[in-house]
Design a protein around this nucleic acid. Structure first.
Lengths: 172, 172
DNA sequence: CCGAACATGTAACCTGTTACATGATTAC
DNA sequence: GTAATCATGTAACAGGTTACATGTTCGG
């Protein structure tokens, strides 16, 4: 079974016209989600593995820069579909830096809590605005990703606003 | 600055009465989120690092089994607070196995899409039920985490239901 | 012609996983 | 006494990051 990085690379190659390793890296670097930094040390070896496994086809002909044009083999397309259908993996809760930290915030002094809530709210609003901006000129494939990322940030926003409310109205 | 694993370990030791490395591992293993498997090879070295940095205090006296009682030093408590306040890290979008895969589902044949939507909906409902179950007999600290994890699953559920609706009523 | 962007790759390092190894305590 | 659980740890491996190294193409 593919790893998530390999799945993400196959998506870039097969569905988003990232036809070279370099373009895959660029896509990862520009992506609003910090899934992967797209470091050379991860992308090039991963693509080599995928080529060796026969999931990615690399044009033998490469120009003077060594650029290789990449595409998915049928087997790559099948592996990717199989990987995407793995319900247990898809529904896993995974690591969330916000969730991990949020529990600690309740132990801060009340005034610090209020400050922090406001700061985080403003941060998450910026992030939502940035996502909206990013989603312009993206293909429909990326749109689904951005939609879900935005909804995650909206969820955090709503959680933060409820927290702020409780801090401001401790009465009720 | 602490890594997220180190932060999570300090939380277990300082706020959740996981007073030995073994108990920290158990907590990770039982956690509904798959943040970390709590493998011996990650937890013991990480705790050793934290002790060496002076963030965790380990009782010199250990019983015949070698059990060391752990606690946070003042410096550990400070580092943990600082780590928790890192807005950029907390608001990062991070990797989501669901988001990563969801974009591919639209390319499946319509009948497979409907099947998959139903399957995923049922899976996410089970997960929400399991979270509710798990949240019994948990400390208030864990409650915040479970609350946010549940809301993530509710978000996925709502996304999936919207998808299913669109599949069943392609008219509108 | 020079700097920015394009393009590929390697090596040292860090950390997490798996599997293994060891032994103590407790409940039946 | 013996199986499950408690408890700690190491070694081999895998994979990601950073930093480095190299060379090409293109725009001004």
């Amino acid at each position: 079974m593919l790893t998530d990085l390999e799945g993400a690379i196959l998506i870039e190659i097969g569905f988003r016209q990232r036809t070279t390793a370099f373009k895959v890296r660029q896509a990862f670097k520009c992506s609003p989600s910090s899934d992967w930094q797209g470091s050379a040390g991860s992308v090039y070896p991963a693509i080599r593995r995928l080529v060796e496994k026969g999931l990615v086809l690399a044009d033998a002909a490469h120009d003077a820069r060594g650029t290789q044009r990449l595409s998915l083999s049928t087997s790559g397309r099948n592996s990717l579909r199989e990987w995407s259908l793995d319900g247990a993996a898809a529904l896993g809760i995974g690591m969330d830096p916000f969730r991990l930290r949020a529990g600690l915030w309740r132990d801060l002094p009340a005034d610090q809590q209020l400050n922090l809530a406001r700061q985080m709210i403003s941060g998450v609003e910026s992030s939502i605005a940035a996502l909206r901006e990013y989603s312009r000129d993206q293909d429909p494939f990326e749109a689904a990703q951005v939609e879900l990322a935005s909804e995650l940030q909206e969820l955090r926003l709503s959680w933060l606003c409820r927290w702020r409310e409780r801090l401001m109205n401790p009465a009720e």
